[in-house]
Computed example of a mutant assay.
Amino acid sequence: MTLTEIIETFKTKLNPSKIMDSLEKTASFYDESDNDFGEDDSGDDLKNNPYSNSASDSVKSSGLTKITRDEKEPLIKLTDVWKIYQMGEVEFAALRGINLEIYEGEFLVVLGPSGSGKSTLMNLLGCLDIPSEGTVYLNSEDISGFDESELARIRGQMIGFIFQSFNLLPTLRTEENVLLPMEFQEEDIQIARKKASYLLDIVGLSDKKHNLPSQLSGGQKQRVAIARSLAVNPPIILADEPTGNLDTKTGNYILEFLHGLHEREGKTVIVVTHDLDLVKYATRVVYIRDGEIEKIEKRTKSEPEELK
């Protein structure tokens, strides 16, 4: 599928809800005394939140993007889900009868070793794939049989992705990478630029907006990826090994930022990882091995000072 064809699938434009003023506080996840995290010299006023003006947009949102259901109903639900791959004459089941419910506002950690099926599960949760058997519900809609254009529309409006390898386009500058999801949603370019500038302020990279990814450190690339994931203000943030390519200090800053989004913004955060240290951020932990859920552990929310 060409880029033009991809953009053509995004004809339904998201009318984002407000990003609360408290999101600005999460900008303090970086230490200004550290060169990598203290280079923001922007004088822009973060109170000028461009997302707060979006309510006047005349474009109708997709029904799937409106989280207006009974809070007791899961935001995402997998029922007896299997994912089977054909390898020559042999079938391999990467997932086996998965049953999982994820509720709005959770910080869910999916924990498992390499080859456990957690990446396959992530693909289903992120609407990157559909199951071989079973049913996947998103916002009470059965999306198991959706085609790629429908899945792409949902991904563009409801899910912000943060990948281990950052997945920034190498030929696009920082600001352009953040603008890309909004271009897919056909956002007005002037409004989109204001939003991109606002998000880069929040992650402390306003002075790097014209840099290419090759000119950024690993931590800076991941912060660009976070800004991009928030571009259309999606209700779900899906992170795949978000600290896997980062040093411990930088990784902790990233996790504190995600924790802030969850605590202050009520974002549903799903982190797929093999790192046991990430469990301390979770409200629930799903342990997966050999394509099956071993157990689901509910955890008491930790206080922010306990995470430092």
Rank of each mutant, 00 (worst) to 15 (best):
M1E: 10
L3Q: 13
T12S: 09
T12W: 00
K13Y: 01
L14F: 05
P16E: 13
S22L: 10
D31L: 12
D40Y: 00
S56G: 02
V59C: 05
V59D: 03
S61E: 13
T65I: 11
I67T: 03
K72Q: 15
P74A: 11
I76R: 01
T79F: 00
V81L: 06
M87A: 13
G88Q: 08
A94K: 05
G97T: 05
I98M: 13
G105T: 07
P113T: 10
G117T: 04
K118N: 10
L124C: 07
I130L: 04
P131R: 11
D142M: 09
D147A: 06
R155C: 08
Q157N: 15
F161K: 10
S165F: 14
S165C: 00
L168H: 08
L169S: 07
P170I: 14
L172K: 13
T174H: 00
V178L: 10
I191F: 02
R193W: 00
A196V: 01
V203G: 06
S206G: 14
N211R: 12
Q215F: 05
G219R: 08
Q220V: 11
A231S: 15
P235F: 12
L238E: 11
A239K: 05
D240F: 07
K249M: 07
G251Q: 05
I254F: 06
H262N: 15
R264A: 08
E265L: 14
V272S: 05
H274A: 05
D275M: 09
D277E: 13
D277Q: 12
T283Y: 03
R284S: 01
V285F: 02
V286Q: 06
R289M: 11
R299D: 06
T300R: 13
S302R: 15
